[in-house]
């Protein structure tokens, strides 16, 4: 770990200006950032500690939605009665992630910004375009069991490791930020992450110094069934091989609405409108579910040791849809 200047932010506003300088980073839970700093994968010259800012509340909005302060720990968010009541998929996703200790530290904003668990990203002895742009991708042609089958580029096949963010994607969350120039913006989660393309080192649309202050959830979907299903290599305390977050409303045996997002498949929490289009207005049946899986996986491409994710995802999605629709 390289040494750094440590500052405790006095306010969100000063935090953003402090963090806008090159090499500066915010720190909150630190569970991912410090992990990476110890390995010198992250080498910030300055850490702006935002943990004492008043950004840790969960508030109900007049429109029926919920605003989650960026510092709300994962465990508190999972246990929040309003979340359990209206957004069970989020609670379930949070509880499927990490460990009790980590959930007590990890924050809502930080979780969205988790970096990939790609083996090669984590090893500074190997090339990695995300860590060291232009150095090459060791995962392509290497061991890539946990890596992506959708949204990849020839520069990077990393996956986003979060469970929470997958649920947030299914819930159409909006990320509220404060920029160094004092502007606030609201970014739909669909627009928040970037595909790797030629620049896998750039993962989100955040600008230098831009601070996530909250995450907004829209009004709960009425009459919806929620599900978060995660498949992993051990029973607990492991990242997803694949996961499904689903919020589905039925009208009799017909799918009235469906929101489905996926973990372990791509460089961002994955969502594809074609999957939902294959379901909405259709009879809940295995044929419908198969069509949804086809839509999801049409462009999926394995890289050898992760080929299995494609059939695994297909089966997991079909079983999840059976459960969500009661079919």
């Amino acid at each position: 770990m390289k040494t750094f200047q440590y500052e405790r932010a006095a306010s969100a506003e000063t935090a953003t200006t402090d963090a806008a300088t090159p090499g500066a980073k915010f720190i909150a839970g630190g569970t991912n950032l410090l992990d990476l700093m110890k390995l010198q994968i992250e080498t910030p010259g300055k850490l702006v500690d935002i943990t004492r800012l008043p950004l840790g509340d969960i508030e109900s909005r007049d429109d029926g939605g919920l605003t989650i302060g960026t510092l709300v720990p994962n465990s508190d968010l999972a246990a929040e009665p309003r979340v359990i009541e209206g957004y069970e998929v989020l609670s379930r996703a949070l509880l499927a992630g990490a460990s009790g200790q980590l959930r007590n530290k990890a924050t809502t904003g930080g979780n969205l910004l988790q970096r990939t668990r790609c083996y090669y990203f984590y090893d500074t002895a190997t090339p990695c375009n995300k860590r060291e742009p232009g150095s090459g991708c060791s995962a392509i042609g290497g061991f890539n069991r946990i890596l992506a089958v959708l949204g990849t580029s020839d520069k990077c096949i990393a996956t986003h490791p979060s469970d929470m963010a997958v649920a947030m994607r299914a819930l159409d969350a909006t990320i509220v930020t404060l920029k160094a120039d004092g502007d606030r913006r609201r970014i739909a989660i669909a627009d928040f992450y970037r595909l790797p393309g030629e620049t896998p080192e750039i993962e989100t649309v955040l600008e230098p110094g831009e601070l996530i202050t909250a995450v907004e959830l829209p009004k709960p979907v009425e009459g919806a069934r929620h599900l978060y299903r995660k498949v992993r290599d051990r029973a607990s305390y492991a990242f997803a091989l694949v996961s499904v977050a689903g919020v589905v409303v039925m009208d009799g045996t017909t799918v009235k609405s469906a929101a489905l997002a996926f973990g372990g498949l791509g460089p961002m929490p994955w969502r594809n409108p074609a999957v939902e289009a294959a379901l909405v207005g259709k009879e809940a049946s295995d044929a419908t579910f198969a069509a949804a899986a086809d839509a999801l996986l049409a462009d999926a491409r394995g890289f050898g040791s992760n080929d299995f994710k494609i059939p695994l995802m297909r089966r997991t999605l079909i079983a999840s849809l059976r459960e969500l629709t009661g079919a």
């Binding site: 630190g30 569970t31 943990t51 465990s75 200790q101 980590l102 007590n104």
Partner: peptide, 21 residues
Amino acid sequence: GACTMLVNGRRVNSCLTLAVM
């Protein structure tokens, strides 16, 4: 988890947090 401490009553991994914080 070998480093688990209770910070303000909550269990956390003490290896993944800075003393200064």
